[in-house]
Design a protein around this nucleic acid. Sequence first.
DNA 1: CGCGCGGTTGAGCGGGTTCAAATAAAGTGG
DNA 2: CCACTTTATTTGAACCCGCTCAACCGCGCG
Lengths: 248, 248
Amino acid sequence: MAKPLLQTSDLDLYLSRPRNRPFFSEGDPSGAIYQVESGCIRLQKMTEGGRRCVLSFCYPGDVFGLGTHGPEQVDAEAVCSSRVARLGHLGLQRMLQSEPARAMKVIDAAYGGQEAGSEHVVMISFAPAEQKLAWFLDNLGHRLGQSIGDELFVDLPMMRADIADHLGMTFETVSREMTKLRDLQIIDLLGLRKFKIRRAAALQSLALTGSLGAKLCSSRSRSIQSRRESSRMARGPSLATLGHIRLH
Amino acid sequence: MAKPLLQTSDLDLYLSRPRNRPFFSEGDPSGAIYQVESGCIRLQKMTEGGRRCVLSFCYPGDVFGLGTHGPEQVDAEAVCSSRVARLGHLGLQRMLQSEPARAMKVIDAAYGGQEAGSEHVVMISFAPAEQKLAWFLDNLGHRLGQSIGDELFVDLPMMRADIADHLGMTFETVSREMTKLRDLQIIDLLGLRKFKIRRAAALQSLALTGSLGAKLCSSRSRSIQSRRESSRMARGPSLATLGHIRLH
DNA sequence: CGCGCGGTTGAGCGGGTTCAAATAAAGTGG
DNA sequence: CCACTTTATTTGAACCCGCTCAACCGCGCG
């Protein structure tokens, strides 16, 4: 993975939180920027009905804190024991003056630039449960996967209910679809918080088109996703948004 | 409504598009910022399956062009005949130097700061069809409604299918729920592109709690399909994200 | 050991979809 | 302005995916 956007010299302070504790809550003063050092953060919104909606997960290296990734709109909670570096708005102001181009990249990332947020909306709007989960696991594989040989091992930082609240479904359905993917030999479940991607191509096909490409197996016609060839997935650059705006 | 963020002196050029024509498409060069002058723009994503997902509608005064509101992630198309002002990245660069604080507000708006994007995700994830539509119409009322007496008249710039693609449902369901709201005497349908809100309180209650709660408050609170009503602040400014970051 | 939490699995139901047809509105050209 | 076509909306009926409710399993821990 590339070097982190923020270096230790930029940072104001470090924050640690145990599982399920907030780094900030909706309504907190805004303007600071955060970078995940270790663990996993979920950006979420609670409803009075007790419903939770996870807009996004942030993994080590990810930056958040502005817009839909900031305290005006969401809470940020530790999925598991996590550490986060914080750049206060004074520090950001300093960076804007000394290194404006880099500062804009940081700002873009903090708005959610590291992920394709629109993909998420498309998925939870239209995709059937199987495809949603395939999309999520495929992304996780690209993001957190550790290749050993030609197999990809992935640690799941979050529990089923977190995934469910991220994909707009129930944890029972997550569980069912997960075992379905296992039965299809697409993944192996290695304990509750780990899995292995056995057939990455099949998983990706499911994620993108909603069905297993040319090969057989129970295929579902309703396809959703853009058929972008193998390479980049959610993994788009997107950091470049304002990258070319030179300030001096 | 407040004065527009961008003044004529800022702007590079004006663009007009007839219905269903793009202002930009996914993958176009980015960095420019757009402000709606008249009409209505939809920010959307297409899928190979022919499915369309409308992430957001932009009305006169709204600013878009960055992040999930920019060409890296979505297309921008005219819902109806529309006019848009454009501020190229050179102009933005100039503004960043001459009026950094205002430039940051513009940037925040262009990322989607004028709307609560996270609300949209919550709605399409969990809310039932009736509540989704109530939420949408209630928002439209606040945004585009024209009060005459104690009644609120609203022009619908978009067709049912646009609404459906925004709320993650089919246009048939939109139509059904619309007539259901009419039968409940909550709205009146005045032709295809106009309606009147007869009972704003009931509509809001539906939008917020998912049911016609006994009572409600004048300001907007939020919750998804909960039986208990609660009054929190709403309509967060959100433009203020970086507003307090003074550059000089 | 018993308790609790997280996860899996099963049965049944219902909201929203799909398919299909009818109706209404908006163009279009003469 | 009217006949005609096209597009948009309404409405109906049947189906099915995912939800709800509920039981059960497995593991960690006091």
